[in-house]
Structure formats: structure tokens, C-alpha cells
């Protein structure tokens, strides 16, 4: 297979989910025979380019057109399609994300490809091409066959380890035609928390619920998140009430996370909240109600008052890290 991996960057840094996608591509190339080309759009920091090679790229292409730095869906799709043809790819791999999904869908039409999203493992190639994907918001999986010649796989976060032993590869800069028509949707402004761990990318998430009573009580959540280098999340009522920004809302109708550790503070564990966190490797629940449903989905739990427990936990973690 000739594999092209489309990667995303955040403020010049390659996202971890994209490094996972490259590593997935490398494993697929090894399994099927073939090579992995990686495409970065916009500017990527030089030291990060090394990580791309280490994750298993055989070739790296970059289109450093500044217009591509932000997520212009049609422009990205147009560019990826050109490079896909240029390198003679027959499979496109990318990380599932809000941009990745939108770009992949347009590419499925452009490339006449079969697209599978939420992929959680390498394909079975013994009878065609069959991959497992997560469905029903993490409540089930399904084996899905791709029947088209061209294939697109959107990989779910934290389902494939990042490879670090690949060789450093030189970057080839491409200058390709990019017509104005693909910028019909104009980005006029952007609002973005800077210096924070991105929630969908995070290895550890600390999340707070309505039991915390108000936004003025989020200081202790922030302290714990900082001590753990974690991203912050919240339940739906918390963002509905405007206590926290919407992009922190986790669950069925919010962000789906898949960290190594999810710490839920004063969240009851409604099924719609669990739908967004059920892919976490470990779940810790802190709740004063021993019958809170979240305990059933947890690995570890503490029954008690969050206002006492959370500051103590932050201290204990700081002590451990010293």
C-alpha cells in the first residue's frame, strides 16, 4: 500500500494524535508492504519535523502556504487530494478530529474512496480490508469492510502508540496551486486558549461537575490540572450555565476524550456523560454520594467532599513529583 498521512499542527507543533496516525500508517505499511508519506500543511516547527520521521515517515512533504495555517476545510481537502495523486497513494490515514473529519469527508468524494472513521485497530487483510471502529459513542464496535480501491482511515485518539525509533527524514517543500475558490468560507477571527493542554489531545483530564456549585470554585480544579499537566473538562450543565467554556464540555454532545487518566469531580455519571469518557484507560471518581452512578464506571473512587479531597490530592501529587 502506498500511504499518505495528513497531519495537523497546533501553533506550529504537530499534534500527538497526528503522530499516532503516522505510527499507525507505518504499522500498516509494514503489514502490507509499501511506504508512508506524510503531508503537513502550513508551518511546522523544525524540531517537530524530527518527530514525524521518528514516528515512521519515509517521506515528508510540506506545503508552507500561510493561508493553510488555520483549518480551512475545503482548501485542506483540495491540497491533500493533489498530494495524494502526486505521491501515487491509495490509502489516506489521518487523526479523527473536528478538522480531520470535515476534510476526510470531502476527500472521500474527491478520491472516490471508502472512508471509515473512529478506527481503533489495524486492518485484517486476510479477506479484503476489514477494520474495527468504535460506534454508538463508545458503547460498541463494528468490523467494517472497505470495498473501494482508495481507502481513508480516521484513527481514534489513543488507540495506537506513538513510534519513536524511526529515522529522521528530510522535508520536501511543495508549492502547489491553490485557487481562491477553495476559500469561499472565510475565517474572520479566532478565539483560543493559549498555553493550555488541548482536551481531545490530553493524557490526563480533570473534570468538574455541577456539584462544585459555581465557577468561583474552579480554582482547585485548575490547581489539580496544573499539578498533573492535565487538560480541564466539565459536564454539560456546567457549560450550559456558563461556568466553563463550551469547548471543555465532555460527553455525548460534547468532546469525546480518551486519556490515560480521567478524574471526575462532583459529576454524577449520567449515561450521556459516560459516553464521552468510556474510552479512558483509568477513571477516578470523587463524589460525596456513594451511590453516584459514576462509581460503576470507575477504576478508583473516593467517597467524600470534593472541597476537602481535591486540594489534598493536589498536594499529594506535588509532593510525589518533587
Amino acid at each position: 500500500m502506498s500511504i499518505l498521512v495528513y497531519i495537523e499542527q497546533d501553533q506550529g507543533k504537530v499534534k500527538n494524535s497526528s503522530l499516532e496516525a503516522i505510527s499507525y500508517g507505518a504499522a500498516l505499511a509494514e503489514k502490507s508492504g509499501g511506504k508512508v508519506s506524510v503531508l503537513g500543511l502550513g508551518s511546522v516547527a523544525d524540531e517537530d519535523l524530527d518527530l514525524i520521521g521518528q514516528a515512521g515517515a519515509d517521506a515528508i512533504y510540506q506545503v508552507a502556504d500561510e493561508r493553510l495555517n488555520s483549518g480551512v476545510i475545503q482548501a485542506h481537502a483540495y491540497m491533500v487530494a493533489q498530494v495524494y495523486d502526486l505521491v501515487g497513494a491509495n490509502t489516506l490515514v489521518l487523526a479523527k478530529s473536528s478538522l480531520g473529519d470535515a476534510v476526510a469527508a470531502r476527500l472521500a468524494i474527491k478520491l472516490n474512496a471508502g472512508l471509515v472513521s473512529n478506527v481503533v485497530g489495524l486492518p485484517d487483510l486476510s479477506a479484503g480490508f476489514v477494520v474495527k471502529r468504535s460506534i454508538f459513542t463508545g458503547k460498541a464496535f463494528v468490523e467494517t469492510g472497505i470495498e473501494a480501491e482508495n481507502k481513508i482511515l480516521a484513527i481514534k485518539k489513543n488507540t495506537h502508540p506513538i513510534k519513536t525509533d524511526g529515522a529522521v527524514v528530510p522535508v520536501e517543500k511543495l508549492t502547489l496551486d491553490l485557487p481562491d475558490t477553495v476559500f469561499a468560507a472565510k475565517i474572520t477571527d479566532m478565539e483560543k486558549a493559549s498555553g493550555e493542554v488541548l482536551l481531545p489531545e490530553a493524557d490526563i483530564v480533570v473534570s468538574g461537575g455541577r456539584g462544585l456549585n459555581g465557577p468561583e470554585n474552579w480554582g482547585m480544579i485548575e490547581d489539580l490540572a496544573e499539578a498533573l499537566k492535565a487538560a480541564k473538562g466539565c459536564s454539560k450543565p456546567v457549560s450550559d450555565l456558563g461556568w466553563r467554556p463550551h469547548h471543555e464540555h465532555v460527553g455525548q454532545t460534547g468532546v469525546k476524550v480518551a486519556p490515560a487518566l480521567y478524574i471526575a469531580v462532583a459529576i454524577s455519571g449520567a449515561i450521556q456523560h459516560l459516553a464521552g469518557v468510556n474510552a479512558s484507560r483509568y477513571i477516578v471518581v470523587i463524589n460525596k454520594d456513594p451511590d453516584a452512578p459514576f462509581f460503576k464506571a470507575a477504576d478508583y473512587g473516593i467517597v467524600g467532599d470534593a472541597f476537602e479531597i481535591v486540594p489534598k490530592l493536589t498536594e499529594a501529587i506535588k509532593a510525589l513529583k518533587q
Binding site: 472512508l115 463508545g138 464496535f141 473501494a148 477504576d299
Partner: peptide, 21 residues
């Protein structure tokens, strides 16, 4: 262009370990 084949449920979650502190 794709065909769903067999479905599967996730492995059941083990018992929660409640800790004292």
C-alpha cells in the same frame, strides 16, 4: 463503499476500588 460486518460490545468494566484517602 463500506460494509458493516460483525458488531462487538466492549469488555465489561471491573469492580471499582474505593479508597479511604
Amino acid at each position: 463503499r463500506t460494509a458493516t460486518k460483525t458488531y462487538e460490545l466492549p469488555a465489561p468494566k471491573g469492580e471499582v476500588k474505593i479508597v479511604a484517602d
